[in-house]
Every structure is written in C-alpha cells, then in structure tokens.
C-alpha cells in the first residue's frame, strides 16, 4: 500500500464528501484559488467550481455564522477557518449560536455544520499563530470536537462528521499535514466515538491527542529501550470523551501521564486527570502526571519554542518520575 500525506488524506476526504453529497460545499478564506492555506483543497476549485468551493472575505464571524445558517437551511457546509487562532473572531457564532440553538429551541433546530481548522504550535510562527485551543472548544456542550492524528482519521473523521446532526469541529494539527502514513483498510468513514490505543503497554499510559500523539509514540519508543512498556492512548474525540478506554488503560497500567500542547492551567489535560481521579483513584500507583506547554506565549526562536512545548524527552522524564526513577 502506498503512503500518503495527512494533507492528501484531508483532500481525499473533502473530494469524497463533495462527490457523495451535492449539498456539501466548502467555504473559507483562500480555499479556492489559492488552494487552501495548507494546500488541503488544492485542485478542488477546478473540479467542483466556485459555487461549491467558495472563497470568503476575511470575515470569520460571518462565514462561520453563514455556515450555521446554511446548515439550518438544509445544506451540509464544511467551513474552513484558516487556523484556530482566527477562530476567536467567530467564537460568538460558535458558542452562542451553533452550540446553543438545539437546546435553546427545545430541540427544534439542529445545526449540521462541520468546521475544520488547523491548530497547534511547533512551526516558529510565534505567539499569535501557535495556539492550541481545542480544549477550550471541548468545554462547550452541544458540539463534537475531533482531533485526527493519523491519515486514516484525517480523511475518515470528516466523512463521519458530515453525517452528524449537530456541529462538529475538526482540529488538524498543522505539524501533521506533512506526515506520511498508510490509509487503513475498512470503510472510509471511521468511528468517532472511541479513543484508540496506538501502542499497547503495561507499565504506564500516555494519554494524548492530535499532534502530541506522535511525540508520545516517540517517547514510548525511547522508554521501550529501557524496558518500560508504555501504552499510548489517542483520545481522538475530546467531546464527547470516551472515558471508558482511558479508565481501562489506567486499570491495566496503574499510571498515567496526560500530554496536552495547551497551557497547563485549566487545560484539557486537567480534565482527563480529574476524571481519572474521580473514576479510578484506587487503581493508581502514583498521582496522574501532566506534560503541557509552559505558561507563556509561544516564542519565535526554535530553542525557546521547543522549551515551551511538550517534547518526547519531557514525557520520558515524567514517566521516570512516576516510576520513581527520576
């Protein structure tokens, strides 16, 4: 089987979605003529035309809101917000309209909207372009939050999301667009209710999602050389959270490290740790540990950026401490 990049996987998913359902369309900044900021939609304008691949003005609030309206009106819009950093301009539409309409209308209106955006740091683009805010979004009831980490999920989660009756937000870690992988066998639309164990192990559970999955796997490889078998759990879906898979792993390994590229305080990692404490306290041999970003705006120089973010070495050190080897 040939390898494809994550970016190609997203493009395959988009193309399949557009082919399958005439009500699907893509809109966002530079998705058309430019080919997508991360080249995910390259070629789609020629293939599907400007009605279905719609370049929008720099109006995040309005084109996200328009996506909500189009979804209410019977379309299946895919809205691309260039990056999570700019999604802040659309936060009102997301929180006050997309997420509330169903409940607030007594179940009368659902918003079958899919919003995609790039997230994450690691590319030296400094403080204003390096946010990891998917954990904030996971705070919001009424929406689904997906963090595909593999090419199979990058393509398949989009297809599944388009069958959901309520808003789905897909966070694509910008660092992942160039990674290569093989599309797994099976139906293109993947499950979006379960976490996935990406590597099995018995000594410690590394819980993470998105771009950090690869860092956790790298850490697990290092740990294996010392004879420590780490299990890597890719959360995949931050809301609704598959706590069952998390607890099953902790009950097996009795130790957990949560890795999250967001700032530590109030992070999604804190939520995972709290839920483990609530549900599996007596299974633990050590307190749950966290590896998160330092509490700073992400700096430009590489050495400082590297220092600010979770890294395989930091994960290894956290595991050592849990095992009393620090």
């Amino acid at each position: 089987m040939t390898k494809i990049t994550y970016r190609e996987a997203v493009r395959i998913g988009l193309r399949e979605a557009l082919q399958r359902n005439p009500r699907v369309f893509l809109m966002g900044e530079d998705v058309g003529k430019y080919g997508g900021t991360y080249a995910c939609s390259k070629g789609l304008l020629d293939e599907f035309g400007p009605e279905r691949i719609r370049d929008t003005p720099l109006s995040e609030s309005t084109f996200v809101g328009a996506g909500i309206g189009a979804a209410l009106g019977g379309m299946r819009p895919i809205v691309e917000v260039m990056t999570v950093n700019f999604s802040l301009l659309a936060l009102d539409q997301i929180l006050n309209n997309a997420a509330t309409l169903r409940h607030m209308s007594g179940g009368q209106f659902s918003v079958p909207l899919v919003v995609r955006m790039a997230t994450g740091a690691g590319r030296q683009v400094a403080a204003q372009h390096s946010h990891s805010l998917e954990g904030w979004y996971a705070h919001i009831p009424g929406i689904t939050v997906l963090t595909p980490a593999t090419v199979t999920d990058a393509r398949g989660m989009l297809l599944t999301a388009l069958h959901e009756p309520d808003p789905v937000f897909i966070f694509e870690h910008a660092y992942l667009y160039s990674i290569e992988g093989e599309l797994e066998e099976g139906p293109p639309a993947v499950d979006i209710s379960r976490a996935a164990v990406r590597r099995t192990g018995k000594d410690v559970s590394l819980m993470t999602f998105g771009g950090s999955v690869w860092k956790a796997l790298a850490a697990a490889t290092q740990l294996a050389q010392e004879g420590i078998e780490a299990e890597v759990v890719d959360l995949r879906v931050l809301r609704p959270l598959d706590i069952g898979t998390i607890l099953a792993s902790v009950q097996k390994t009795h130790r957990a490290v949560v890795i999250d590229e967001a700032w530590r305080t109030g992070s999604f990692a804190a939520e995972i740790a709290a839920q483990i404490m609530e549900e599996a306290f007596y299974d633990l041999d050590a307190p749950v540990a966290r590896v998160c970003s330092e509490e700073v705006p992400i700096p430009y120089p590489k050495h400082l950026e590297d220092a600010a973010l979770p890294q395989p070495e930091k994960i290894v050190r956290a595991v050592h401490r849990l095992l009393g080897r620090g």
Partner: peptide
C-alpha cells in the same frame, strides 16, 4: 445577521 445570510445562501 450571519445566520440569515447563511439561510439565504442555502
């Protein structure tokens, strides 16, 4: 307003 724009787009 954006919601209305989207309904009209649909």
């Amino acid at each position: 307003l954006p919601v209305a724009v989207g309904l009209a787009l649909a």
